[in-house]
């Protein structure tokens, strides 16, 4: 079962929930895999002592334009949905704007004059790691300067999914646009982590509307409970949305987290909370089969 840990708002505690939940699943005797798909700034593996076992360079299509063969017909620029081919026939100028290119290869199909050469460029690296208990971890890391976030996320999840595991936990990128959609769409269940502030609620609403439109199952974890106001709770109860757990707004939790430790290991009530969370997810998984 694949579980995305996502949020609308950034900084609500996706990594906090992912890292602790992962440990809880393993303690309950399940095989679990932690995947950091927040490819623009992956950091969930900081919480474990790991050894790298493998890495795969992820590449994406980028055309090479040979202007000496170009007849300036403009068909490649017409085919390009993303306006990634800068083309001024009056000045005999043609070139690729790599940051706009999505690697769809339409330009290559368009060109009948051999002016477009197929080629691939590195967009990032998917690494796999192992801990002392032989548990596997995957991390997708986008190359500096690359804007190909989506292909990087897809590749990270695809590679991790080849592993046999009871639970694959996907620490997702923030937001509610493409990166969020691409992680959620590849998951059987989405845990939305939010906080009871106006910002948390506003972004959670967007995330929920998005997941509803995708017919995805989800539940909500309220982090920093006690902060803000009750609007979030009203919204969740009005819409019959399941609260999977509440993590209190606490200095102790923040202290443990910022030291790189797991509250699951250090705080009894948090240990219990995460075990309960596991059971809820397991029950949900059983209800599917």
């Amino acid at each position: 079962m694949k579980i995305a840990i996502a949020s609308g708002k950034g900084g609500t505690g996706k990594t906090f929930v992912s890292t602790n939940l992962f440990k809880a699943f393993k303690d309950l005797g399940y095989s679990a895999l932690l995947v950091d798909a927040d490819v623009e700034c992956p950091n969930s593996l900081l919480f474990y002592k790991l050894k790298k076992v493998d890495e795969t360079i992820v590449k994406e299509y980028r055309p090479i334009i040979h202007s000496e063969k170009c007849v300036y017909c403009g068909l490649c620029a017409d085919y390009c949905e993303y306006n990634a081919i800068f083309y001024v026939p009056e000045l005999k100028q043609i070139k690729l704007l790599p940051n706009l290119c999505h690697g769809c290869k339409a330009c290559s199909v368009a060109c009948q004059y051999g002016a477009i050469e197929d080629s691939n460029t590195e967009i990032g690296i998917v690494s796999s790691y192992i801990d002392k208990g032989k548990n596997l971890y995957f991390e997708g890391r986008l190359k500096e300067g690359s804007v190909s976030t989506i292909p990087m996320i897809k590749s990270t999840i695809t590679q991790a999914s080849k592993q046999l595991s009871d639970f694959i936990l996907i620490d997702s990128p923030p937001g509610t646009s493409c990166p969020f959609i691409q992680t959620s769409i590849r998951s059987d269940f989405v845990i939305l982590v939010t906080e009871p502030t106006p910002y948390g609620l506003s972004d959670l609403r967007q995330a929920i509307l998005t997941l509803d439109s995708m017919n995805k199952s989800y539940g909500v974890i309220i982090n920093r409970a006690g902060l803000g106001n009750m609007d979030l709770y009203d919204y969740l109860s009005e819409n019959n949305i399941q609260i999977l757990g509440e993590i209190p707004f606490s200095k102790e939790i923040a202290r443990i987290y910022t030291q790189g430790d797991l509250v699951y290991d250090k705080m009894e009530d948090m240990n219990l909370l995460y075990r309960e969370l596991c059971k809820k997810i397991i029950n949900y998984g059983n209800s599917l089969s």
Binding site: N83, F86, Y87, V88, E90, L97
Partner: peptide, 18 residues
């Protein structure tokens, strides 16, 4: 109102006007 690449398209436009 293009989704992406309004800047380069506008450069192309003004360049074609010389």
């Amino acid at each position: 109102n293009v989704n992406e690449g309004a800047g380069p398209l506008s450069v192309k436009l003004i360049a074609s006007y010389g």
